[in-house]
Computed example of a mutant assay.
Amino acid sequence: MIYKTDMKRWLDLVLSIIGLLLFLPIILIIMILIKLDSQGPVYFKQRRIGKNKKEFYILKFRTMRIDTPHDIPTNLLLNPDKYITRVGRFLRKSSLDEFPQIINILKGEMSIVGPRPALWNQYDLLEERDKYGANEVTPGLTGWAQINGRDELPIDVKAKLDGEYVKNISFAFDFKVFFFTIAKVLTSNGVKEGRSHSKSL
């Protein structure tokens, strides 16, 4: 209980600060490459649903052109390839586009591990998560559903896995999710683009 209410937040802060300092050179290089590769801002902001359904703006490195339709998951785009930039393709495949969410974690809007924050208009996912109390916890950079299928999961299965995480929150479980996330990122398992290929939310 102490972990869920206090220790988890302090661990998020400490690890986020360490990660920010450790990867700062890489972050700066990515920012330069994005600016050289395509027109537009370095960061991409998107409305997401946080703890207790409070809205916030998630941060990512921009991986798509500025004329890409907003608030539409990439898996629903007919031809995502025409929107994804050259640098963006690498960032998405390696999940390096998620780096700026360290800022969301520092602000307390996200945790390192938790259910991935839904888009504001993913009403079906939010409704399913209500059944398991998954909308009542801080969303994460990675989560139990992400290491068990990611984009390949149907909404009801994803929500059920988020519910399993809520019931089992602990230091050991978070460590397990984090460890397996690294393995997933290295193999790109579960990542798709477009209606036949999509990027995880």
Rank of each mutant, 00 (worst) to 15 (best):
F44G: 06
K51Y: 08
W144R: 13
G108R: 02
K82Q: 15
I58N: 00
I34M: 08
D81C: 11
D97S: 12
I72R: 11
L15R: 00
G108H: 06
T74S: 14
I66W: 07
S16G: 05
G140I: 10
N104T: 01
Y132D: 09
I18T: 09
L78Y: 07
E152W: 08
L91S: 07
Q46L: 09
L141M: 14
A134N: 10
I29K: 09
R48P: 03
T85F: 09
F90M: 09
I18H: 06
L21T: 08
F61H: 13
R116P: 04
F44M: 01
L24I: 01
G19K: 01
P117G: 03
K45N: 14
I26P: 12
L59A: 05
I72E: 12
D151C: 15
I112T: 07
W144Y: 15
E152Y: 07
R62Q: 11
G114M: 03
V87D: 04
L126Y: 09
I105Y: 14
L77K: 00
R92W: 02
L20Q: 02
L76P: 03
V42F: 07
G140P: 10
L59E: 12
L22N: 06
I84R: 03
K53F: 05
L21K: 09
V42C: 06
L20R: 07
A134V: 00
E152M: 11
I66P: 00
P41H: 07
R48N: 05
P41M: 05
G50R: 01
V14T: 11
E55A: 15
K107D: 08
K35C: 04
L76A: 14
N148Q: 11
V14C: 03
G88A: 08
S95V: 06
S16K: 02
L22R: 08
P139Y: 00
K53M: 15
S111T: 04
G133P: 05
K60A: 09
L20D: 10
Q39T: 11
V137W: 08
H70V: 11
I102D: 08
I34Y: 02
T74A: 13
D71I: 13
K45M: 12
A118S: 15
K35H: 03
Q101Y: 15
R86G: 07
N79M: 02
Q39K: 15
F23M: 12
N75M: 06
K82N: 13
G149F: 09
I17Y: 11
P25I: 00
L59I: 14
D151A: 12
P80S: 12
I103R: 04
L20A: 10
T74W: 00
L28F: 13
L96T: 05
G114H: 00
I30D: 05
D71Y: 06
I103S: 01
F44R: 02
F99A: 04
I26G: 06
K60I: 01
N148L: 01
K54E: 12
R89M: 13
V14G: 02
T85G: 01
P100D: 08
G140T: 13
L106F: 10
I26R: 05
I58G: 03
P117I: 05
R47A: 14
L77Q: 01
L33Q: 10
V14E: 03
N148K: 11
V42E: 12
S16Q: 06
N52V: 09
N52R: 10
I29C: 08
Y132I: 04
P139T: 07
I34C: 06
V87H: 01
T63C: 14
F23S: 09
L125E: 00
D130V: 00
L78T: 15
R47D: 14
P117V: 00
